[in-house]
Write a protein that binds this DNA or RNA. Structure first.
Ligand SMILES: [Mn+2]
Ligand SMILES: [Mn+2]
Ligand SMILES: [Zn+2]
Ligand SMILES: [Zn+2]
Lengths: 143, 143
DNA sequence: CCCTCATTGAGATTATATCTCAATCATAGT
DNA sequence: ACTATGATTGAGATATAATCTCAATGAGGG
């Protein structure tokens, strides 16, 4: 079993919950790629794989994964929420192409630093943030 | 008539559309405060004021206001979209309190600058962005 | 006055996400 | 092994924002 799946198993069991086959399936699906997944995509992939987890359980397990700190829920300004797992993936923000939908990632540590400043100035205690830049990717600009 | 309403009137008419009483009402409502309004709030305020604009028209007019460049649609990570008018309101980003819902505004020109850099590096042509910091406001941290 | 097309409103519809609840399952205690 | 307890699941109902449909109305040009 993958490291991350095992970590999730630990989290679940430490909480006194059960590490069920359904939860394992969803976790494995989420940990299987670095794509930005949404609940429906996860459900569909599981179905294709022959797993018969229900929609409700997918949503519930995604919540647990986020709670565990192994997965992040991100809002890309699209109609549905996206999820990405964190291991081997330092914090980053997103460039969202309004034409083809491509999502690129970028890191800008100084921006993070300045955000902390802004919070201090406002006596605001931050727990997270969302920075999306919308526009057109290189490919789409060419046209 | 307020300057901004007149600008909207011009935009509408230049597009060959009609500046109807309904559109005027919605515009006046949006321009009447610097709050972050959502469609339902606008609708409710109009109803209180005795105006009988339909929900569909509120949504449609908000779209037109955004198109005109006089109003910005913002996603604060809440369940509904917010709108704020731009005149006399330099660009800013938002601190969203997860407890009381308060939304504070902040400006950090250097962040804007760094965003442009990030886009250049990625050959990405930006048209807009959304930066929300989530956490707890001064008031709510105290508790 | 007529024609055309924009506009509107009521309600239907879509789509994401959450909720409900009965059936099932795991586990600990006896 | 039996039972009681509580966790888990799935199917479908529900909530909610936003969009869509379409018939009726209205404005403006010729
Ligand atoms: Mn990402
Ligand atoms: Mn604002
Ligand atoms: Zn693109
Ligand atoms: Zn607060």
């Amino acid at each position: 079993m993958k490291t991350e799946t095992l970590q999730f198993k630990s989290y679940i069991e430490e909480k006194g919950l059960l590490f069920t086959p359904e939860r394992q399936s969803v976790a494995e699906e989420v940990f299987s790629s670095h794509d930005h997944l949404d609940a429906e995509k996860v459900l569909k992939s599981l179905r294709v794989r022959g797993s018969k987890v229900s929609r409700a359980t997918v949503y519930r397990t995604l919540d647990l994964l986020v709670e565990s700190g192994l997965v992040e829920k991100i809002d890309l300004g699209e109609d549905r929420a996206a999820y990405e797992h964190i291991a081997g993936h330092p914090h980053h923000d997103h460039l969202v192409c309004l034409r083809c939908g491509k999502v690129q990632e970028f890191e800008e540590p100084l921006i993070e630093q300045l955000q902390e400043w802004a919070c201090e100035k406002a006596s605001f205690k931050a727990t997270g943030h969302s920075l999306n830049i919308y526009g057109y990717c290189e490919n789409c600009t060419a046209k």
